[in-house]
Design a protein around this nucleic acid. Structure first.
Lengths: 219, 219
DNA sequence: GGCGATAAGTTAAAAATTTCACAAAGTGAA
DNA sequence: TTCACTTTGTGAAATTTTTAACTTATCGCC
């Protein structure tokens, strides 16, 4: 299993994810070999970028031939940590938390939402997507007992930092934050945020001012 | 109202959005002046980065004094296109579409979801967040009559491209795509995507392999 | 009104990322 | 086996983005 050199751009991992998805689509269509050129056309990414990204992790292709789709998928699955299952909890049982809990794309990738937490009396005990909503007092115990490593924050912005603190204390190793606010986590806890309004604001900006035609997905 | 020089990094707009949010928080707390240093500490962004970002659009600060919070807010509001209202439609009335429709952060910023569309018989006519779900056949007419410029796609991946095509034909000017697939839009239509699983996959990667401690929000 | 302190705006250097261009490697046909 | 063709992997160049260093402006105080 490939491991290779140096540092690589942060965006590489994100692109690997896109490659992975495109390759899945190709297997579904029964295609078993693809060139960086062909893949690049599909994804609107330069072939040289694709080759460079992959080269950070190994030599997956065959010169003159391209990449074996199944093999590359296997390697990417390993690199992206998708060859195992992850237990995930969601904090915040509002509309967004409920949607995330039931989002089909997560389970398909091995991210299993195993419980939902909230601190509101009238949500605790309710059932969402087959899961009972638990109170925050059960958080620490649940995380320990169920070996939960990843948490998703889906609470209002003002509560996000408090939740992040509790999650960190409970032993959570990675946090995905949907709340529209900047939060700080201790060393050792991985953190990424998904910001819904920021993207809309960027669109609004480009509609108002920019002459740029099309806009490359920048995340 | 400021307009200024050259090109600037794509990420600048995203950061302006963060600055805007932080400044809002500062006004709420009654603080009316802030330095790039202080703002940078809050957001974990280098002061020089903040000054550079702002300098692309104008001279908003006073040397020796910092930035007037209210004034900078006003300018950023203008730059980000938040000084007006936008009519937004959501396509896809599943869990995610419903959550997006009711997401409080959008309306607060002037993004008003004015209708929800779906093509499933048993969703059409239902009411979500006070809005009736409309069939796709009403799309074109609705967009024209209501001056809708922005659409949010919240359908399964395989349907996203078809939806994007219909939206473009209907005259939509910007698309925010939550579906986990790469889509192509005609020139003149702005496009950004928010990818939920990609972020989780990035976290999974960093948990498996990376020694990096903390991870700067990269969107 | 000059002086010290602060902090913006800017220029230049550094770092990060993408793209180019090409040598090396593999294929298939003659 | 050799040749023509394809396509990878990669070192170097080009580009973009960030960071540091510097210059200039503003305030408050004596």
């Amino acid at each position: 299993m490939a491991r290779k050199k140096h540092k690589f751009p942060k965006t590489t991992i994100e692109r690997l994810s896109y490659y992975f998805r495109a390759l899945e689509e190709l297997t579904r269509r029964g295609i078993d070999t693809v060139s960086s050129e062909a893949l690049g056309t599909r994804l609107n990414i330069k072939p040289s970028q694709i080759r460079k990204d992959l080269s950070y992790f190994g030599d997956f292709g065959k010169r003159g031939m391209g990449y074996d789709v199944k093999y590359l998928l296997k390697e990417l699955r390993y690199i992206l940590g998708l060859d195992r299952n992850w237990n995930v909890i969601v904090v915040g049982a509002g509309n967004l938390g409920a949607a995330i809990t039931q989002y089909p794309g997560f389970m398909k990738r091995g991210f299993n939402v195993v419980s939902l937490f909230d601190n509101s009396k009238n949500k605790i005990g309710a059932e969402i997507g087959g899961l009972k909503v638990r109170g925050m007092d059960e958080l620490q115990g649940f995380v320990k007992e169920n070996n939960v490593e990843i948490a998703i924050i889906a609470v209002p912005g003002h509560a996000a930092q408090t939740v992040a603190d509790r999650l960190s204390r409970a032993g959570i190793k990675a946090i995905l934050n949907f709340a529209p606010s900047h939060i700080v986590v201790p060393d050792g806890v991985r953190y990424l945020s998904v910001d819904l309004t920021t993207k809309l604001e960027a669109l609004a900006y480009y509609m108002s001012f920019s002459k740029d035609k099309l806009w490359k997905v920048f995340s």
